[in-house]
Design a protein around this nucleic acid. Structure first.
Lengths: 178, 178
DNA sequence: CACCGAAGTTAGTGGCCAATCACTAATGAT
DNA sequence: ATCATTAGTGATTGGCCACTAACTTCGGTG
């Protein structure tokens, strides 16, 4: 397998480990085991553990932006927002991505590099949503806030509740001005 | 100083350390230094590092509930919600409490005890807000979502932006049905 | 004054984990 | 066939950190 393919495999594995345990508690050993590769080899593919973490964040945001792009294709305004919201709540079946967001913010509290990246990617997401929906600032903030709440509830792993919460949140998104 | 007084001093210090670094990265050494006490003595006051973390969570929620109680005193409905929202955004000057929430959710992703406690305290907060405001479920969810967004922006430490974000968020809270 | 319990310390241990180093196996171009 | 590059491993290490054990200090009380 080529180094580039391996690197992507590492990011997929890292997303799960970091998402579950957070930056500090996740071990390069566990990531390597998940990839099916020896632990020292990770340091051939990436310069450090933190580099893997930062790359995982980028990986998650890249996929999320593609997902939003696809969901909103051919739609505008509230229709686009609704589609993106529904698509986002579909991530409840893809916990690692949601959990990575929490872990990113958690790490951003004390790490400058993480904070800088988190700001940049959040701003990018914000702009993408604005571009695809054309909604005003307040509306987008409401949309983002709903997403945050969904992240949190996913982290609490509320078994049945989360599903209906997804609907309720999307209801929140659907009808901004009841 | 009595053991009980020390214990509370430890919780105040732990809130800062855990809030900044997260559960795994924070060290009992740093907490002890902040309290002005030797590190092994922490293990006389608490059985384990995790016990300190769990107690810090309780400490933060206890204070938050007192804060909401005080803010909403004599008010009902939207007025109470607005008062609590304003009070919450006042925590922007008290980062540790906001950051502890993020760290709690982050740790809840993989730790059963933390998750159980987080669920219980979040549910309690939810009910308190419902009791004090009398708002319906959807309205409260909107209120909570705004709070989550504020937590996140606090973690990103957006210098000037956060303040006006506070206002905008509270505007979101103020006028639910624009 | 003796002593007892509670507050607090110094010194140490065992385990874990990121990162390094020196090495081997396969692949492919000439 | 040879040689160079690329993929990959095993063994190790140095530092950190939660937690333990054994000792010290001191204010109050019979």
């Amino acid at each position: 397998m080529s180094a580039d393919e391996r690197r992507e495999a590492v990011l997929r594995a890292a997303r799960v480990e970091f998402g579950q345990l957070g930056y500090a508690a996740a071990t390069t050993e566990a990531i390597a085991r998940r990839v099916g590769v020896s632990q020292p080899y990770l340091f051939r593919l990436f310069p450090s553990k933190k580099a893997i973490f930062l790359a995982s964040i980028d990986y998650c945001f890249d996929r999320l932006e593609l997902r939003f792009e696809a969901a909103a294709e051919g739609l505008t305004g509230e229709d686009a927002l609704t589609a993106m919201g529904t698509s986002y709540s579909g991530l409840l079946d893809d916990r690692p991505t949601l959990q990575m967001q929490l872990q990113m913010w958690s790490a951003a509290c004390h790490d400058d590099e993480v904070r800088t990246l988190a700001r940049r990617r959040m701003a990018g997401l914000w702009q993408q949503i604005a571009r695809l929906s054309g909604a005003d600032e307040k509306r987008i903030m409401q949309f983002m806030a709903s997403g945050m709440l969904l992240n949190v509830f996913a982290s609490l792993d509320l078994p049945r509740i989360t599903e209906q919460l997804g609907e309720t949140l999307m209801g929140l998104v659907d009808r901004p001005t009841t």
